[in-house]
Design a protein around this nucleic acid. Sequence first.
DNA 1: TTGTGTTTTATTGCCTCC
DNA 2: GGAGGCAATAAAACACAA
Length: 280
Amino acid sequence: MESGRLFFNPSGCSGNMLFLGNLDPVFRGPRSSMLNLEDTSRKRPFFMSSPEDLFDEEYYEEQLPEKKRRLTQEQVDLLEKSFEAENKLEPDRKTQLAKKLGLQPRQVAVWFQNRRARWKTKQLERDYDLLKASYDSLLSDYDAAVKQNERLKSEVVSLTEKLEAKDMTGEPQQKSDSLTADIASGFSPQMGVKAEDHLSSGSTRSAVVDEGSPQLLDSEDSFFENNNCGECIIGGPVDFLQSEEDDGGSDDGRSYFSDVFVTAGEQQEDEQPLEWWVWS
DNA sequence: TTGTGTTTTATTGCCTCC
DNA sequence: GGAGGCAATAAAACACAA
């Protein structure tokens, strides 16, 4: 314990040493307090000591340290409100609150300290959930892209083989040209679908889509943009990130990972598409 | 009633800032 | 060097199932 700091003492006097009179000077806080003094039956209200009581030495002599008492609901409500307004506590506010609540300023400070710790823990939990959701989403997008990639590769192989076979048979050039034209136009006689849909040859998306396949890639668009990847990382959780803590905490509502999460707009302007992540 | 897990209150020690 | 913040921790208070 720092030299300048006072122990909080339920009775309202300054420090357990004073409170305990000539008890073991090593006495500090709850650990040792419970060792010797647990079985006291002499109790008095924890927060309701009158100023007269607080300076009545006889009173202290006959009293033994109290166990911890929880704050009343009213006290907690007021503290919560205050925390919501501002989660740091300036000295003036601390004194005012303490007066208002009938608590020691030290108690108010401790409450804020603990409250900030609780808020931080919850915020970390939320950030974790958020990151996990983003990761899961990216993973499933990636899996879909890999499958799609495989399918396209095999189609290219198949078409190439067909083309070569036609050339070998020495069929009239016209027919071969026709097949080439078919391929170029995106029509695959074998599969009965427009290859354009798979090969992403145009900048405008075809209305004909292979049933059962995921939305296809556009050559000029990032897969992740098509799949709202930006949103899955960024856009979706923004409200969540900025929302207040469920149980009334406030702070600024910012995520501990706020540096990691960027806005979708920022990403489009400043960053390369995320294709490298999939295709490299 | 009791054992156990969770929450709340408080202390301690270290660190930073002025 | 003192004041205040934070992380780690203790221990009382509380909740709840068996």
